[in-house]
Simulated scan of single mutants.
Amino acid sequence: MRIVLADRYPGAQFWAFGDGAEMADTLLALVLRGEKTASCCSYTAFRQDGAPAVGGYHVILDGADNPACVIRTVAQRLVRYCDVTADMAALEGEGDKSLDYWRAAHRDFFQREGGFSPEMLLVFEQFTLIERLQ
């Protein structure tokens, strides 16, 4: 299936949300329900992973590493963690969708990733669901 998807979506990256199987499945479910239409990563991770630019495709994997859906980036911007707005946090669709929840969850995530600062640069990405694969 991955070869077919790579042919159908040239340049697509295959990845899962979060940093574990449970988080991957939880965030994937939000995408499939239409509640999660944005995500972010540290600018450092973005540069290391070489993520596709606006218009690029991503094949999102579930917690078992199976392709679950395809999303397409529709907007990207650099923003500091401390400058993320309530509207941006709500687009991520996580928890109670509040900025307070977003800040706590993402601070914990970036600390696990190896570096957190309120001033850290993030790449905030908005996307649209293109295809369900499961």
Rank of each mutant, 00 (worst) to 15 (best):
residue 134 Q to P: 04
residue 16 A to N: 02
residue 82 C to P: 00
residue 94 E to I: 06
residue 27 L to D: 00
residue 79 V to E: 03
residue 57 Y to Q: 00
residue 60 I to H: 08
residue 35 E to K: 07
residue 38 A to R: 01
residue 49 D to K: 06
residue 20 G to Q: 12
residue 8 R to G: 07
residue 75 A to W: 08
residue 84 V to S: 03
residue 15 W to Y: 15
residue 84 V to Y: 10
residue 6 A to V: 08
residue 22 E to F: 09
residue 102 W to R: 08
residue 4 V to E: 15
residue 91 L to C: 09
residue 105 A to M: 05
residue 30 L to Q: 10
residue 84 V to I: 15
residue 35 E to A: 08
residue 42 S to F: 09
residue 78 L to F: 07
residue 71 I to D: 03
residue 40 C to M: 03
residue 98 S to Y: 12
residue 106 H to M: 13
residue 56 G to N: 01
residue 101 Y to H: 11
residue 17 F to M: 00
residue 65 D to Y: 12
residue 32 L to D: 07
residue 92 E to Y: 01
residue 132 R to C: 10
residue 17 F to W: 10
residue 51 A to V: 13
residue 47 R to N: 14
residue 109 F to A: 14
residue 20 G to E: 04
residue 110 F to L: 14
residue 2 R to K: 13
residue 102 W to T: 01
residue 67 P to G: 06
residue 40 C to A: 15
residue 11 G to H: 05
residue 57 Y to D: 05
residue 85 T to G: 01
residue 118 P to N: 03
residue 130 I to P: 01
residue 22 E to W: 08
residue 110 F to G: 02
residue 54 V to R: 14
residue 106 H to F: 08
residue 55 G to K: 10
residue 18 G to M: 07
residue 70 V to C: 04
residue 29 A to C: 04
residue 39 S to R: 02
residue 122 L to E: 04
residue 44 T to Y: 11
residue 108 D to I: 14
residue 29 A to W: 02
residue 14 F to I: 08
residue 62 D to Y: 13
residue 68 A to T: 04
residue 41 C to F: 02
residue 61 L to E: 02
residue 35 E to P: 00
residue 111 Q to W: 03
residue 34 G to Y: 00
residue 102 W to F: 09
residue 102 W to G: 04
residue 86 A to D: 02
residue 75 A to R: 11
residue 49 D to H: 13
residue 40 C to R: 00
residue 75 A to M: 12
residue 52 P to T: 11
residue 27 L to F: 04
residue 72 R to Q: 14
residue 64 A to I: 08
residue 44 T to N: 12
residue 21 A to V: 04
residue 65 D to V: 12
residue 125 E to L: 03
residue 95 G to S: 15
residue 112 R to H: 14
residue 76 Q to S: 13
residue 37 T to R: 05
residue 133 L to R: 01
residue 99 L to C: 09
residue 23 M to L: 10
residue 111 Q to D: 10
residue 36 K to N: 03
residue 23 M to I: 10
residue 125 E to G: 07
residue 68 A to N: 07
residue 117 S to M: 12
residue 134 Q to W: 11
residue 97 K to A: 08
residue 52 P to R: 11
residue 92 E to D: 11
residue 48 Q to S: 14
residue 132 R to N: 12
residue 102 W to D: 00
residue 98 S to T: 15
residue 43 Y to K: 15
residue 73 T to N: 05
residue 83 D to L: 01
residue 50 G to C: 11
residue 48 Q to E: 15
residue 48 Q to A: 15
residue 30 L to C: 05
residue 21 A to D: 05
residue 12 A to V: 12
residue 103 R to S: 05
residue 131 E to M: 02
residue 44 T to R: 15
residue 19 D to H: 06
residue 77 R to W: 06
residue 120 M to H: 13
residue 54 V to M: 11
residue 32 L to A: 05
residue 94 E to T: 03
residue 133 L to M: 07
residue 62 D to R: 04
residue 127 F to A: 02
residue 42 S to D: 07
residue 130 I to S: 06
residue 19 D to Y: 09
residue 51 A to W: 15
residue 115 G to H: 15
residue 55 G to D: 03
residue 31 V to M: 06
residue 25 D to R: 09
residue 129 L to E: 00
